[in-house]
Design a binder for these strands. Structure first.
Lengths: 233, 233
DNA sequence: AAGGGTTTCAAACAACTGTTTGAGACATGA
DNA sequence: TCATGTCTCAAACAGTTGTTTGAAACCCTT
């Protein structure tokens, strides 16, 4: 009768509604009553289908995150196979990791955009169970990409690269939070929804990330004891 | 008797406790009872001294943010005076804006570090009153720095720069959230508390930011891929 | 038609939220 | 000493939170 994908209509309506509301109000500020109201379901449905609010959150992240990271790994596989024994070019690794995310953030109808913005904010979420869940969910893909980067950038100290990777994640996080947050910087709301703007954002972020990744290494700061002062007045 | 600065002991104890707890658990998840318990004050003290939880939050951000932005403006004044009619070099503007923040984040004893990490997370906070408050609080300093950047980077389209500024904020945000978040990327917890590590972080972030800011402009994506129209670099 | 497993529902649960109250403690100046 | 304004306190407030309950409705196979 029903599609196999459509296990439970209520279940996915709850997930969709929760995704939208979590991104709009945050995890804590979104109540189960708000979610079930928007999903046109009973309050008890959440605990029936998922067990608890925490479990709902984890399931919500899982269904998108596994797909996202599978895409990333597949892309990396492709690149490594094509490169043979040679290291993959850093730019291509960056595009594999961040490009998939940006492309997902471009999907406005399917909710991918909502999710990416939610995920970006959640990265710095203080709740312990979220932290642990994300760390576990990311473990494999991060290990693979780190290894690829190490191989591609033998001249960059590993610790230095880890920080730069961290910075890149921050830049991407703000990139996908996009139009809402940028009004703090620019007065005009930018239209992220159109395809053209998405392509522009992709190009902009990539330029910025590669520029940062390939920037000259800082002077080794272990030597100097005092804070770096202005060089010229 | 008491210092003039020490208007009310309870008042500042509450602010300090709130700052620490907000950063540890987030704005929503931190309750007034948690705050007053840590501050060894009565629950009613918050509403007596501040009026409401929202007012407490605003006051908490105000007391540090005004100082932070005053420092930034003073630094920019100094740079512009020294440069005369010439535009200030981009690197110096970046250091003025982000350097102050990183230095504040290095202050572990005075709570500056806690605050900067809290501020970084709050940037993408969905709560409307926080958004409006931050936008207002940042308006002047952002206008001044944007103008300085525009003058210093006449060849970079304004919209392009605004995005790069946005990306830079994201990188800094993740930089100061630091050791807790980086464990997602690197397995080793980095020691951000020592002076040496702070200097290293400063140098690392600056290299990355300048690298991203001065990266080659992306090929103009406004036109479709049909015509790879060359930009006037 | 009957049965059994799955899903929905209104209602209630205890615990917790920010806020208010009114009485009391405290300090200061006349 | 008394009066006055500032501050603290235990207690209660009304409202909301996530979760549970037990009965009803539904669906599908027998």
């Amino acid at each position: 009768m029903a599609d196999i994908t459509e296990i439970s209509d209520t279940r996915s309506r709850i997930l969709d509604a929760a995704e939208r509301l979590f991104m709009e109000h945050g995890l804590e500020a979104t109540t189960l009553r708000m979610i079930t109201a928007e999903a046109q379901a009973n309050i008890a449905a959440v605990n029936y289908h998922f067990g608890s609010k925490e479990a709902l959150i984890e399931e919500l992240f899982r269904r998108r995150l596994t797909w996202l990271n599978e895409q990333r790994l597949a892309e990396l596989d492709r690149l490594e196979k094509a490169a043979g024994d040679e290291p993959v070019k850093p730019r291509l690794i960056v595009e594999a990791f961040f490009g998939v995310a940006i492309r997902m953030a471009a999907d406005t109808e399917g909710g991918g955009r909502n999710f990416m913005r939610l995920l970006s904010r959640t990265y710095t979420e203080p709740a312990a169970f979220v932290k642990n869940f994300l760390a576990e969910e990311y473990a494999e893909v991060l290990a693979r990409f780190k290894a690829a980067f190490f191989k591609a950038l033998p001249d960059v100290p590993k610790e230095e690269f880890l920080w730069r990777f961290h910075f890149m994640l921050g830049a991407m996080s703000y990139a996908v939070s996009g139009a809402d947050a940028i009004k703090v910087v620019g007065e005009d709301k930018l239209d992220l929804d159109s395809d053209r703007e998405t392509d522009a954002l992709y190009a902009r972020l990539m330029s910025f990330l590669i520029g940062g990744l390939r920037a000259p290494l800082p002077e080794t700061p272990a030597k100097q004891a005092k804070k770096p002062q202005k060089k010229a007045a």
